[in-house]
Amino acid sequence: MARTTPLPAAGALPATRRRPLSTRAYPAFRTVALVVTVVALLLPLIWMVLASLKTNVDIYDPSKSFVFAPTFENYVNVLTRNNYFVFVVNSFWVAFVSTLLSLVLGVPAAYSMSRFTMHRSALVVLMARVIPGVSLLVPWYYVFSNLRMVGGFEVLILSHMFVALPLIVYIMMGYFDSMPLELEESAQVDGLTPIGAFRRITLPLSVAGMATAGILAFIFSWNNFMFALVLSGSKTKTLPVAIFDFVSYASIDWGGLMAAATVVTLPIMVVALFAQRYIVSGLTAGATKG
């Protein structure tokens, strides 16, 4: 005779299934991982800002890590006595011009590679992204020194474009790949030329991608130290190179160094904070294509 399972009584509630331990522990693990990551990223910045408000004696005193008498002498020294405003203008000019020229050249190039499936050209762009810039410093210096261009803004802008241009092309190719081709075809049916469809339809729709690529290229140029150290002159020195002046053979002015580093970091943090929506949307534009 077959054995039957007794049915639950009327009105009885089924027993609640307990979630697995791994499922219950995941929120706690995620919270801990997030806190550890945020602390690891913010701790150097917090130490930099606090050290910029201390004297060198207080920086070396562990008892004054958080409780100390703040001083703005380091910022006065950086902004007034060392002529750092000129270095700020130099950094902004090099970053702005190199980013603008890279956008002017890179956006049409990325559109052509995307629409006409230029796989070999895309491979060349990817190789340019992979090649370390330090391997090109010696050839660049040799060529530009023979052309008597070392120490000018032109050589800094060209060297920064070598990294900014492939970055912009790489980002914009993914962005154009995610845009439907039917929009341009409909515009051409209405009487626009392919160039007109690009200018009036595709280009306005790719503003978020261009903002992403431009911001990342600007940040790279603003923070670049290696190219400017070798190729800049006394009148074209940028902020990252000017910070190096606080490091001498005998000692390091930690207070002035941290104040100068704060001056360099603060504008980029503000730009990234207000433009994070464009950066995230532009970087993930082509992620769901297909």
Rank of each mutant, 00 (worst) to 15 (best):
F162E: 11
T212D: 08
V143R: 00
G209V: 01
V230S: 07
Y175C: 08
E154G: 15
L158W: 05
G191A: 11
P194N: 03
F198E: 04
S114R: 03
P194G: 01
A211H: 01
T212W: 00
R120Q: 11
V134C: 02
V169C: 05
E182D: 15
M179T: 10
M173E: 02
G133M: 04
L203C: 08
M172Y: 01
L205C: 06
M127Y: 13
L167C: 07
F176H: 12
F225K: 13
M161L: 07
M149Y: 03
G151I: 01
T212R: 00
M161A: 01
L192D: 12
A122Q: 15
G196P: 03
D190C: 04
R129L: 15
R200T: 12
V189L: 05
R200E: 11
P132H: 04
F116H: 14
S121V: 01
L167S: 12
Q188N: 07
V230Y: 02
M226H: 06
V130P: 05
L123Q: 09
M118G: 13
G196S: 12
H160L: 12
S186G: 08
V230R: 07
F162S: 15
N223E: 05
S114Q: 08
F198Y: 13
N224Q: 15
L229E: 07
L205F: 09
L229P: 10
R115N: 00
A197T: 01
I168E: 10
R200N: 15
M173A: 01
A197C: 09
V230G: 14
I201C: 14
V155H: 01
A228R: 02
P194C: 04
M113T: 12
Y142T: 11
M127G: 14
F225H: 04
